[in-house]
Design a binder for these strands. Structure first.
Length: 418
DNA sequence: GCATGATGC
DNA sequence: AGCATCATGC
């Protein structure tokens, strides 16, 4: 029996106190939806389509022939055979040489074509996945888009969002970020966005109990600067931008179980330098090293990894005789413990927020969850009050060994609120 | 249906 | 380098 199995795996609290009640909260969020400014997207679409056409023409001229810019196979032929650009910067895929972003960036100094392809890919992605696709998904009855939240597809316990996926709306590039302006509040309302600050690193500090990392968070300073100061044994004000940026990548690399090779690829440094970076990190934060060693040992024995709320992820890879499979399983174990525990935290916050909004009969609507961020719709004039009310609950959803901090903003669209 | 490459956290 | 979804080519 399934109930018997849940009881035996000690998953009763997670199911009955978290996931099932959460399903009701998610249903309300899906039904409420979020308003979309379709006219605004139509305007963007015209501009982007025009520019994409120009780029297509230019690419054909640069290549000396017509080809499908969206076909990696055809592009591979143009770049590496027709134009004879070096394949040395490209890794091998099953079908030949890769033409992904990192490869095109490395080819850019040698020829104009790679840059134009990069821009064209960005525009095509924006048009196909967001600008042209989102208006099709507006419900004519509500004038809003209604995503579906999936509770059972992510191995870590994170939520997923589909049809449309509102958890991967662009923000990084200027053109992409424009799309967020199309997500708007109901008349007389504002959008409020509150996101956890560096929640996964804080979770690592909590899980590992590393004294130096905990101390760094308790100081409330820029975590990447304080870790850089610790690793390089200098004062925080002496940390260079380059040092901070390197340490930031290592900080996040630790969460994903990075190894020398991965870090060297990512940072564009030698494997030897990457090894020194990682040794420096674990030297400065020995508690993190001990935690990871213990987690991996424990996961290997039990064949699974658990989050703070006891959510389980089976990892049979750890018991494989294939070294690559084991190493991949080890990265999954580390990532799952951290990511899954952060997912546990925001789920508790969502339950508390929903219950208190109901109990106090507040006019706040929870609209979206984006892993470490919640977006609400609140009446105009109540932005500041709602922010402190929500922030307080998000920051106290669990008690960790480090402070939990959430940053907030509000505005007349999602970009402004972020 | 798989491979590739884009987007997000 | 971990976790996802979506579009496109073939």
């Amino acid at each position: 029996m399934i109930e018997e199995k849940i009881k035996n795996l000690d998953l009763e609290d997670l199911l009955y106190e978290v996931e099932l009640p959460l399903s009701h909260v998610l249903m309300k969020m899906e039904q409420r939806g979020i308003r979309l400014d379709v006219d605004f997207l139509k305007t963007i679409s015209v501009d982007l389509t025009q520019r994409a056409k120009e780029l297509e023409k230019e690419c054909h001229e640069l290549a000396g022939m017509e080809f499908n810019l969206s076909s990696p196979k055809q592009l591979q032929h143009i770049l590496f055979e027709k134009l004879e650009l070096p394949t040395s910067v490209s890794r091998k895929t099953k079908t030949g040489f890769s033409t992904d972003q990192s490869v095109l960036e490395r080819l850019a100094p040698l020829h104009l074509l790679p840059n134009r392809i990069l821009e064209h890919r960005e525009l095509n992605k924006l048009l196909g996945t967001y600008v042209n696709a989102l208006p099709e998904l507006v419900n004519p009855d509500t004038g809003r888009v209604h995503t579906s939240y999936l509770q059972t597809v992510a191995a870590t316990g994170r939520l997923a969002s589909a049809n449309p996926n509102l958890q991967n709306i662009p923000i990084r590039t200027e053109r992409g970020a424009e799309i967020r302006k199309a997500f708007i509040p109901e008349d007389g309302h504002s959008l409020v966005s509150i996101d956890y600050s560096q929640i996964e690193l804080r979770m690592m500090a909590h899980l590992s109990g590393d004294e130096a990392l905990i101390e760094a968070f308790q100081q409330g300073e820029d975590i990447h600067i304080s870790t850089a100061a610790k690793i390089f044994n200098v004062k925080p004000e002496e940390v260079t931008k380059e040092q901070r940026s390197g340490v930031k990548q290592v900080n996040y690399g630790v969460l994903f179980g990075m190894r020398e090779f991965g870090l060297s690829q990512r940072m564009g440094i030698s494997i030897q330098e990457a090894r020194e970076f990682i040794e420096g990190y674990f030297g400065a934060f020995p508690g993190v090293k001990r935690y990871i060693d213990h987690l991996l040992e424990d996961s290997r024995k039990t064949g699974m990894v658990k989050t703070v709320l006891g959510r389980r992820r089976p990892l049979p890879e750890l018991q494989s005789s294939n070294r690559n499979l084991v190493q991949s399983g080890e990265r999954m174990a580390i990532a799952s413990a951290v990511q899954g525990s952060a997912a546990d935290l925001i789920k508790l916050a969502m339950l508390k927020l929903d219950a208190d909004i109901d109990r106090e009969q507040l006019p706040y609507s929870m609209l979206l969850q984006v892993h470490d961020e919640l977006i609400f719709e609140v009446p105009e004039g109540e932005e500041e009050d709602s922010i402190s009310w929500i922030k307080q609950r998000m920051e106290s959803a669990m008690t960790l060994k480090v402070p939990i901090v959430a940053d907030a903003g509000y505005g007349k669209n999602w970009l402004e609120a972020h």
